[in-house]
Structure formats: C-alpha cells, structure tokens
Amino acid sequence: MQIRLSRDIGSAAFIAIACAFANTAILVPANAAVEPRALVAPVADYKIYVTGKVRELVTDTRAFTDAVKAGDVAKAKALFAPTRTSYEAIEPIAELFSDLDAAIDSRADDHEQAEKDSGFTGFHRIEYGLFEQNSTAGLAPYADKLMADVLELQKRIASLTFPPDKVVGGAAVLMEEVAATKISGEEDRYSHTDLWDFQANFDGSRKIFELFRPLLGTDDRAFVEKVEANFATVDKILAKYKTADGFQTYDKLTDADRKVLSAAVNTLAEDLSTLRGKLGLG
C-alpha cells in the first residue's frame, strides 16, 4: 500500500473515513511495477489508431466540404455527423494543437459574438448554416478552411511523438468532455446529432483503456471490472437510440437514460482519472 496515513492512524473515526474512501476506486494504490518500457507498445498501437482515424477524417471531410461547396444541402447534412466521429474519437490528441482545435471544433459560445463572430469557424459554423439556416450560402470559405485545417492536423500528428501521459490521460479527458459540455446536448445544438459524438468519445476512451489494460496488476481487477461495466452501461443506452445509418436526434434521449449516461460518464471520468497513477505516469 502506498497510501500514507497521517495523524489519525488507529482512531475509529479514521477507520470509518478510510472505509468510506475504500468504496471508491481512488484509493487503489499505484501499480509501481509498470516499467516505462512496457508503455512503448500500447503508445505505438495508439498512434496507429489515431493515424487511421485521421486518415478517415481527411477522406470524410473532403466529401463533406465538397458537398457544402456544391450547394448540396441534403448531402452535406447527411455527412455532417459521420464526418465528425473520427475527430471526436481522437480529441485527446487533436486538442494538443489548440489553434487547430479552436478552428475545427469550437462552438458559438466560445466566441463573444456567438454565431456572428468572425472567429467562429469549422464544423459547428457549417452545422449552423446547414441545420439552422438550411442553406450552404456563404459556407464555401468555411469549408475550404476546415479542409485546410484538417490536412494541417494530419501533418502535425504524423510528426508528433505521442507523450504517454497524454495518451493514458486521454481516456479520462474524453469523459470530462462529455461530462462538461456534451451531456447537456449543447455540442451539436443545430443538428442534434450529439449521440454520434458520444459514441465516438466513448470509443476513443475505451480504445485507450483497452490498450493499457494488460499493464494493470491483478489487484486492479475490481477497477477493470467497474470501468468495463460502466462502458457496457453506456453501450446499452446508446444502442437503444441507434438507427440504420446512425443515431436518433439528441432530443429523443429520455430523461431517465440521460441520468444513467450522466452517472456512467462521471464515474468513468473519476475512475479513469486514476489510470495515469496506476501506470506510474504523471
């Protein structure tokens, strides 16, 4: 045990407190045995995963922005949500380039003048035109910029040495994203395609967890089971809203299901926030 107890050792009050904390994952001690070398393979595998996702993102963004520039509102609308998923899955890496992340994925309320703000570009600016104004008028420059930004992202990721703590920490980061700004349905506020993003965020988080799971010790079995159970809960809820070609709109999510999702997301965020410590990172 690496828990250092101070002062109150032995008192009944302390034992009660320690028991209360022991119910949670946060007191599981660090697995000191993880060799830095052991991280190399899963980090490399994760880079392969991210590279593949970026390739998809480039291909999909090209089709999406072509549709926008061709004035094909229906096609552009249909491509909006699926195009974003590969970006959402790799957000922990994409966000390392904050200039590109702001250009590609910022939302109207990140800007003082909201939708009218000249700094509001990227996916959500185009989403606003397509779904709120039902038009591609004036969107061509945003489409060109989005394509250029995505290509730039691909270039930067290709030459990036993936920092292990960012990769491992990314599992929790994705859950924090969902908990902070997505569970409310404010991410895709014009198209209401939030459930696509949810699925991609969970997939990206689970990918990281699965890559590093083999490094966790046997004393982390309960932790692994709890995390897997929460991912399964999320899957079960999202599966209820799947359609032939994607997901129902966010407003279809029942209040009861939203609460279950919310608790699962917060619990995953809490538990996965210990993953770096368990692997001796940070």
Binding site: Q2, I3, R4, L5, S6, R7, D8, A13, F14, A16, I17, A18, C19, A20, F21, I26, L27, P29, A30, S273, T274, R276, G277, G280, L281, G282
Partner: peptide
C-alpha cells in the same frame, strides 16, 4: 461516513501524488 467525517473534520488520507488527491 462522509457526513460524519466532514462534520468532525480531520486529515484526509494522502495518496501517491501521481493520483488525483482524495
């Protein structure tokens, strides 16, 4: 147990600093 601790006060357990603090 949380209410009892918080109303009494005391020192929370310290963890390895690579973990989020309790």
């Amino acid at each position: 147990t949380r209410c009892a601790f918080l109303m009494q006060g005391g020192t929370p357990p310290e963890l390895d600093p690579r973990f989020p603090p309790v």
